[in-house]
Nucleic acid binder design. Structure first.
Ligand code: MN
Ligand code: MN
Ligand code: ZN
Ligand code: ZN
Lengths: 135, 135
DNA sequence: TATTTAGTTTATAATGGTTCTAAAGTAAAA
DNA sequence: TTTTACTTTAGAACCATTATAAACTAAATA
């Protein structure tokens, strides 16, 4: 992902390309594999990688803008912190509670043969499979 | 579930049968269908149902003791509050985000045909399927 | 039953992730 | 340039949850 794409990510999220936001966006989106993170872990990694400083509020605001624009998704993990995901396709997760790490499972790696029908007037929006790991 | 069973729930959770705990236990376990709740919702329902008063800390402590004893389970729901469940079997859920309501799906109502193998030296502990509903 | 001991309830404080605020700073528009 | 709108930041506020410790109660002991 080149610089123009980073600017597009920002613009399409309603964000001006400021120094902090460009660095956050590059850190999140200039990578090949999925990146799962919490705001705390992202903050630590950014501090290590760059010389800039980031107020926590800036990271929260930027990450939420990306999420609202569909450039990040949120993963439900047991615990206090919110986990984000650079993979915004429908997919599933392994979760290793030893290391608190998420591992992607592509949608087509799981096939569900039988599923109940949605109650009363409701429809199924999406199906999430979460596989807890042990040693 | 009769009084003796309620006492067993308490004793097996390491709890003496005090007035507050007996009322909480009866409220949670003397029912036919699954009950999903947060500490806040439980507190409100208890206040309506009984004349006793409950400190929030008592509800938290009692619910956690039941959970640690395996008499309640915790359900992962997007949001800030922790959801508990009187159904402690392996099962799945529908989630209606309109009403913030959980609906049980029995384990055998979902059949998974294909599942990836666990990474490196890990094993699968359990598989949770979460079906989000829409109108 | 009276006394002692261990556990419990409660109000309130502390904690921690997240969100809000408003002042100082910066990008874009005019 | 000058003006305007948006952004960053430190710190306060928020809120679910957990910790604290004093008053209370159940259970054990005598
Ligand atoms: Mn969570
Ligand atoms: Mn949750
Ligand atoms: Zn993922
Ligand atoms: Zn359930």
């Amino acid at each position: 992902m080149n610089k123009i794409d980073i600017f597009k990510k920002l613009r399409s999220s309603g964000l001006r390309p400021t120094k902090q936001r460009v660095e956050i966006a590059k850190f999140l989106f200039e990578r090949d594999k999925t990146f799962h993170f919490t705001v705390e872990s992202l903050d630590k990694l950014l501090s290590k990688k760059t010389t800039s400083k980031f107020a926590l509020a800036t990271i929260y605001n930027t990450v939420h803008a990306f999420k609202n624009a569909g450039h990040l998704s949120e993963v439900e993990v047991r615990g206090k912190k919110t986990y984000f995901d650079t993979n915004v396709t429908n997919h599933h997760h392994f979760y290793d509670s030893e290391t608190s790490e998420l591992i992607d499972i592509d949608e087509n790696e799981i096939i569900i043969q039988k599923i109940p029908k949605a109650p009363n007037g409701k429809k199924i929006k999406n199906v999430e499979v979460f596989i807890n790991l042990k040693n």
